[in-house]
Design a protein around this nucleic acid. Structure first.
Lengths: 335, 335
DNA sequence: CTGAAAGCGCTAACAC
DNA sequence: GTGTTAGCGCTTTCAG
């Protein structure tokens, strides 16, 4: 293993030496410039600027002080849902002087475990996860680390610690019921990459279809979600059920793909086929007819997650540990 | 400041004590299980499992050993371009036992500076940046830290250290020339959120238009990019130039939005209006006609960036420090 | 407002 | 294959 000897970076000691004070004073200055006299403050500022001082978090992590960093674990980096979620988090953390470390786990529990170990190895003060299903070792590590944890997006039956999210089964149920009330009889569920939230939505679909005494039609794939998948799933659905009159999609990408495929096939939306998406992303506003979709408060989930976590880190935990932030149906012209 | 006293996590010493060996042996086991005798190996494995040992990177960072972590700075978390870029990086880093820390800077140099300081404070072994324009302090910090750096996506004139990317001006020039060769006379450039790569594409557009003796038409906005923006920019373009017959878009989202807006307005694509996008994302394959777009090798850029960086970290730098990975035009039906 | 001493948990370097 | 020693650069605690 090659010795990657990093060139020595300036230390607090280096700064102190130049001025003839101790590193302790410099340390105080770094955390709160007001805590040292004006004369020294100016000197430290100048020397630290000149030397290009870069904070070193290693000793801070070693001492028992809080690291003022929280770990955020996202399923994917290419999903607008998690980009607004993260924005919501950062608005809160930035305001309180915390930084975040982002990692992603591709909807895979083993990768989640590895990434959580990684985040904890940096002595983060808390974790925000975006899954509710974890390996045994993940649970053990979190317990051992003893840091507060938010499970965001869903509402687990028994959260590890705290949870902020919405009831995806209820949201799906609600969307599918809207289709049933329209009088639709042959409604399919389009699902991709069968992660847990996709399954929850399918459960909501199942319940609504069962209650109405209709026939379920699951069109599923293990492939990663994409726009082009809409066409593929629609082909399968139509061959299985030529009388198809409604599609509830697990996300907007597939819904948009389905609309585009309908245009191509000459199927009129919504006259011949109704379509509802999930997440109410911007593209649903750009297409004609506009996509009817389930709107989820991901920005607010991010905010609330960060608020709850920071409260817990700073010692005043709220009483409630589960927050259901609900959903709405964004109306469009595809229902 | 509340004292966030973390409960004590197990240390190597704790494990060693239970077995009656020294922490040094445990340390060796953690880095290479084969380096200790089979008997102790089994004991350590058992105790470490039982105690739920979590690695602590603080001391590793303090000692002068390499941290085996690289920092990756992305402009945004909601862009498919950077998701494949990151995948390319991770394929390489995972294979070599490195982890990555991801941060994002919203195309803002000051935020980039703050995030680079953050990444360096964790003693990362190297940095992969996705911008070529940096603040003075950013440059100073990178120099002081003395770690290898890749500037990815573009080809800067004078890289800080190494660069992997493509010539966006040339790509745009090429795309616009294809429109000119088709005989189009009124070609607009649609740009959003005027970051540097958007400007480079505009330069390529300008050169092509100038060379052909045509008239430039810049339709720009400072807004964040979106699908709905396509309609907005198209409205402005048509009111400024009713004879518009071509649009080169700075990205596929805007291009798709423009196509959808054309359908709504009854403008035939490409008969009345040709459209070219940038990045060749999946959605361009789902729409009819399929979107003609500039295809960029972002996955390969990620891979090559990671390879170059790790080579440099491990001491065998390649001779070249700039790699232009080129581009192609993905044919579609919108030209 | 500033200083002195001790220590966080690991690894490098050297012994045996 | 395993142990010993020293030390990384900060913060904590206690003095003054």
């Amino acid at each position: 293993m090659p010795q990657n000897k990093k060139p020595k970076r300036p230390t607090l000691q280096n700064i102190a030496d130049r001025i003839g004070i101790t590193k302790m004073t410099v340390s105080r200055y770094m955390r709160d410039p007001e805590s040292v006299s004006e004369t020294t403050r100016k000197k430290i500022a100048a020397v630290s600027e000149e030397l290009g001082y870069i904070q070193n978090r290693a000793p801070i992590m070693l001492s028992k002080s809080s690291s003022k960093v929280i770990g955020v674990l996202l399923p994917s980096l290419s999903n607008h849902v998690f980009s607004s979620f993260t924005q919501g988090i950062e608005v809160v953390t930035n305001a309180k002087g915390y930084e975040i470390i982002i990692a992603h786990f591709s909807y895979n529990e083993e990768i989640e475990e590895r990434k959580i170990a990684f985040l904890l190895s940096y002595q983060v003060d808390g974790l925000i996860l975006t899954s509710t299903r974890h390996t045994k070792r993940t649970l053990q590590m979190i317990k051992t680390a003893g840091v507060p944890v938010i499970e965001a997006m869903e509402i687990p039956e028994k959260p590890i610690d705290m949870a902020v999210g919405l009831d995806h089964a209820a949201a799906a149920y609600s969307a599918v019921n809207a289709m049933i009330e329209k009088g639709l009889k042959k409604i399919a569920y389009f699902g991709a990459r069968l992660d847990y939230r996709t399954q929850l939505r399918m459960q909501g679909y199942d319940t609504a279809i069962d209650e109405a005494g209709l026939e379920k039609l699951h069109i599923l794939t293990h492939k990663h979600t994409s726009f082009t998948l809409g066409n593929e799933l629609l082909s399968r659905a139509l061959s299985e059920c030529p009388k198809l009159d409604g599609v509830f999609c697990t996300n907007d990408d597939i819904a948009i793909g389905t609309i585009l495929s309908c245009k191509e096939r000459g199927i009129k939306v919504p006259e011949q086929l109704s379509i509802i998406g999930y997440n109410a992303l911007d593209i649903g506003r750009a297409i004609t007819p506009q996509l009817t979709s389930v709107s989820t408060p991901r920005y607010q989930i991010g905010e609330k997650s960060a608020e709850l976590l920071l409260s817990s880190i700073e010692g005043d935990r709220e009483e409630r540990n589960i927050y259901d932030l609900g959903f709405t149906i964004t109306p469009g012209g595809t229902l």
